[in-house]
Amino acid sequence: MKRAARIGLALAALLACAPAFAIDPLPFKDAQQRERFQKLTSELRCLVCQNESLNDSNADLARDLRHEVFQLMQQGKSDAEIKQYLVARYSDFVLYDPPLKTSTLLLWFGPALVLAIGAAAVVLTVRRRAGSGPAEAPAAEEEW
């Protein structure tokens, strides 16, 4: 019974690391380090297949970059330093979460801007219709 439980546990552990092992085994010190690695690589974009993260991608370059990230982690680099290392080589493109700066203002606040324009349009239309009286409103709608 105990043995079965142990085997079960071992299988569960094996399954838990299946995504990493499916691509390439990296000698992590502990589960915590592996988790940190997977979180970090899932925030980084694969340059070859750009809809995949470094964590998911099977591309050759993604594998190389995973090794690079792993090496940098072994050297005690922080997540921010590792991201900076990649940004210096591949630009903000490698980040799935684009940083807030002048060139990305529209990206960050564009949706809010569009929403504000829409809200203003609704308010103006409602006010105008309220002011123009009930008799005219249906006629205007029919025309459209």
């Binding site: 340059l47 070859v48 050759d60 370059l61 190389d64 970059l65 080589r89 591949y90 630009s91």
Partner: peptide, 13 residues
């Protein structure tokens, strides 16, 4: 051969 230096150049293909 291993593409290590290419990473420094930002080569991705």
């Amino acid at each position: 051969r291993d593409g290590r230096t290419a990473i420094d150049f930002g080569v991705y293909g």
